[in-house]
């Protein structure tokens, strides 16, 4: 498992990165933590003649908590997310999710930007960001633009990001209410068999708003608006849970792999979502 030869670059500013991306087009890729990209290169499934390391850039490793939103720099690691007390206070779902990603060694390297930009349906952060209605800031030769997480994912490894754009920031509106990230996996270090991200608010004993996204159950993360809506206005009773689950099942499209056949995945997706909603509701 040895990658093909590649040129290595470590520019110190964004202009340098963009210039290299423009120069080499398809043949260039940026690398953040490298924990998705390097395994693919070693398996020779990704051919990257020009590898641009982002770790020489400054200003992409900050976590900023404002009154109405959170900004996370692309190079913030999953470990940074777990350790950040201010973040855990306002958006505890981020820590809950990050703790269920891989293992400590991987989390020390893997970045938020890499996780959401990668486009692997197995990554946990994309679904989370859809649940939180985050947006991604992309910088390219033509300047900066924002894309909503819910509009970013097109197919496995296909996103709205152009080849010559770099994801710099993840912006998240301050979440409200109860939360849960529920994930079933085969072992530590495994991607999800099924995972659900849920944020939920209540007025009195009635659900006021809900947001539901699922991980690794389609070729993209799945924000299920129908499932979210099925909860609003209910007291999250059995009927509401069943309605949310069946709405969610209408939105996902799992495929068979070593984690199991489709029927199993659908069933587990339902169980996991139910548990996530119940836990989020209990915290709302």
């Amino acid at each position: 498992m040895i990658p093909a030869a590649f040129e290595y670059y470590r520019p110190s500013d964004m202009a340098g990165v963009i210039a290299l991306l423009e120069e080499h087009g398809d043949d260039a890729r940026v690398m953040a933590g490298g924990h998705s990209l390097i395994p693919m290169m070693k398996l020779r499934m990704a051919d990257v003649p020009h590898l641009i390391d982002l770790q020489g850039l400054s200003g992409l490793s900050d976590i900023t908590v404002d009154t109405d939103s959170i900004r996370i720099g692309a190079l913030v690691t999953q470990t940074d997310i777990i350790r950040h007390e201010g973040l855990a206070a306002v958006a505890p779902i981020l820590r809950e999710t990050a703790l269920q990603i891989a293992d400590p060694q991987v989390r020390n390297m893997g970045t938020v930007g890499g996780n959401v930009a990668n486009g692997d349906p197995g990554n946990d952060m994309p679904g989370l960001m859809q649940c939180l209605n985050a947006s991604f800031t992309l910088v390219g030769p033509d300047g900066e633009r924002d894309v909503a997480a819910r509009a970013f994912y097109e197919a496995a490894y296909m996103t709205a990001r152009e080849d010559d754009e770099v994801l710099t920031t993840v912006s998240i509106p301050l979440p409200e209410g109860g939360y849960a990230y529920e994930k079933q996996k085969r072992k530590i270090g495994d991607y999800a068999t099924a995972a659900a991200a849920v944020q939920i608010t209540k007025t009195g004993e009635i659900c006021a708003a809900a947001s539901i996204a699922m991980t690794n159950l389609s070729d993209t993360p799945v924000f299920s608006e129908a499932a979210s809506m099925a909860l609003v206005g209910t007291s999250i009773d059995g009927t509401a849970l069943s309605a949310a689950v069946s709405a969610m099942l209408g939105d996902i499209d799992p495929t068979e792999d070593n984690r199991g056949p489709v029927a199993f995945k659908n069933h587990v997706a339902g169980v996991i979502l139910r548990r996530a909603i119940e836990r989020a509701w209990s915290r709302a």
Partner: peptide
Amino acid sequence: HDHWRIWQTANKLGLH
């Protein structure tokens, strides 16, 4: 006895 095979056993026995 991985997750899906255990699930399948339960499923075949009508436990779902």
